Amino acid sequence: MKYIDAFNHFFPDQLWQKMLHAEGAAKDIGKRMRGIPCIFDLDERFRVMDRFDDYTQILSLGMPPLESLGAPEETVEYARLGNDGLAELVANHPDRFAGFVASLAMNAPEEAAREAERAFVELGANGLQIHSNINGAPLDDPRFFGVFEMAAKHGKPILLHPSRKSDMPDYHTETKSKYEIWWTFGWPYETSTALARLVFSGMMDRLPNLKVLAHHLGAMIPYFEGRVGPGWDQLGNRTSAEDRDLISSPIKRRPLDYFKEFYADTAVFGSRSATMCGLDFFGVDKTLFASDSPFDPEKGPGYIRDTIKVLESLDLPTADMEKIAFRNAQSLFGLKAN
C-alpha cells in the first residue's frame, strides 16, 4: 500500500540554525529538540523513512507556534525561513516529500495573510498549519479572518494543531497543570474548542470552500458525538437569561452537520479503538493517514509503524484503504495522482 503521511514535523536547517542562535523561547526550543534528531537531521529523517515501503510525507514545522517565539518582527522572519526551507526540501527530494504546509506568524495577522499567499503562489505550499489558539486568542477573532480567507481563496486546507502549555492549570486553585494533563487531555480539548469556535462563529458559512483538517482524528469530537449532535441541538437550555449573548450564533444548520465536514487524520499514537471511533464519525472520505512522527518513544519510526499496523488490522476494502492511505491526501493537498 502507498502511504502519504499528512501530518508529521520537521525543522529545515535554515530555521533550525536561526532558532539555536536566537535568544529566549526559540533557543530554548532548539535545546529541547536536540534529543529528537529526526526533527532536524535530514539524514536521520531519511533513515527512518527507509524503514517503510512506498512512503512519503507532507512536511510541517514542529511545535511551538511561531507566534509564541517573540515579537512580530522576529516571528515573521521565522515563518519565511521555515516556509522557504520546507519548499526547498520538497523541490530537492520529491520522492521523499510529497508537499508541505506553510506556517505563519499569527501575532502579525496582516503579515501572516501575505505570507500565506506568498507560500501558495511562489512556494507551492499545499496548505497552512495553524494552532488552536493564537497566544491565547481564539481563532474566530476577526483579526485572523484574512488568513482563513486566503486559504479558502486558494483552495488550500488549514491543518489545525493543538497548542497549550502547563501554565494553564487544571483547577482554579492551582497555577500550573500537573502530570502533563495540559498535554494529554488539554490538547484534545484545545482542538475540539477551536473547531467549535469555527463552527459557531459562522466561519464555515462565510467561507464555504474552507477545508479544515483536525489533527489527532478530530480530538474529542468523535467520542462525544452525542453531545455534539443531540446535545448541542438543545443549545441554550443550560444557559441563564443574563448570559444569552454567550450562545448567540449565526449558523444555518445543526452543529453536527458542520463537524462532519471537517477532515481528520489517523495520528492517535497507535490506538485501534480511537481509530475505529474516528473513522466511524468522519468516514473514509474525510480521513487521512498521518503519524505525528517523530514524537513517539522511538523518536521517529514508532507511530508510523503502529498507525499502519492499526489500519491494516481493520481489514478495510481496498478502495477504502487507498482513500485513507493516500488518495484523500492527493485530493486535499492538490497532489498529482499516480
Rank of each mutant, 00 (worst) to 15 (best):
A214L: 00
F200E: 02
P157W: 12
S248G: 08
I221C: 00
S177M: 02
K156M: 13
K178I: 06
R244S: 15
P255G: 03
P222M: 05
V199N: 05
T239R: 14
R238I: 12
D167P: 07
L159C: 09
K176V: 06
P222V: 00
D170R: 10
I247E: 05
Q234A: 14
M203L: 04
W187S: 13
K252I: 04
K252Y: 05
N237V: 08
R244M: 09
H172D: 14
T184N: 12
A219W: 08
L256S: 12
G186E: 01
E242S: 14
S166P: 07
M204E: 06
N209S: 13
T175E: 01
P255V: 03
S166I: 05
W232E: 08
G218S: 11
R197T: 11
L198Y: 02
P250K: 01
Q234G: 06
R164K: 11
R244H: 13
R254N: 14
E174V: 08
S240D: 15
R254F: 04
G155E: 11
S192G: 06
A214S: 09
S177V: 03
D243W: 08
H216D: 05
W187E: 15
N209G: 08
L195Q: 02
L256I: 11
S163R: 13
S249T: 06
D245I: 11
Y171K: 09
P208E: 03
I247Y: 00
E174I: 05
D170I: 12
P250L: 01
P157K: 09
L195N: 00
F224Q: 04
S177W: 02
Y171C: 09
T184V: 06
